[in-house]
């Protein structure tokens, strides 16, 4: 699987650029690069539903982030204790990656998942639900409560945004 490694390296490079560049607009466009890389990775990993979803969601969040940050270019600030903060963060991340490496040894090998529960889904999806796309069958028929929770989360986000943007709160200084 050399192609998934290449796509992951591209995503890491785009993420580092997005984190380190000083212009906010360039940073957001680099995040768009990470999202497009994720879309390609989903296509390589045989998940076309997720690729479509990731592409459209990426475009929408990119538009809204650009609307939020346009003409608000603030200067980059460097704090006083630069060495201490960076050193402690890097040490923490090293410990995190080491622990993750130990934990990942217990996970199954890449490319051979254990599909005990899934065999039922795979074999009975078409006879029970009549849908050819098994991902949609799971999302709508077998796990419809998950989808209901998803819609609830979207409504919660709408309520939160409208509560933040309402007029009476804005007038108060």
């Amino acid at each position: 699987m050399i192609e998934i490694h290449l796509i992951l390296l591209f995503m890491i490079a785009a993420a580092v650029i997005a984190v380190e560049v000083k212009d906010l607009l360039s940073s957001i466009i680099a995040v768009g690069g990470v999202g497009i890389g994720l879309c390609m990775a989903f296509l390589v990993l045989k998940a076309p539903d997720l690729a479509i979803m990731q592409l459209v969601v990426e475009i929408l969040s990119l538009i809204i982030l650009i609307r939020a940050t346009i003409r608000k270019d603030v200067p980059f600030s460097v704090s006083g204790r630069w060495v201490f903060n960076t050193t402690s963060t890097v040490i923490f991340l090293a410990v995190f990656l080491f622990a993750a490496y130990i934990a990942l040894k217990t996970v199954h090998q890449f490319g051979s998942p254990e599909m005990r529960v899934l065999r039922t889904y795979l074999e009975e999806a078409f006879p029970l639900t009549g849908s050819l796309n098994i991902v949609e069958a799971i999302a709508i028929n077998f796990r419809a409560i998950d989808t209901l929770g998803e819609a609830t989360a979207i409504f919660a986000a709408v309520i939160g945004v409208l509560a933040i943007a309402r007029k009476s709160a804005r007038r108060k200084e």
Partner: peptide
């Protein structure tokens, strides 16, 4: 067409 092809309601 989410039931026969890639896609779905949210996309």
């Amino acid at each position: 067409s989410g039931h026969v092809e890639p896609g779905g309601g949210f996309a």
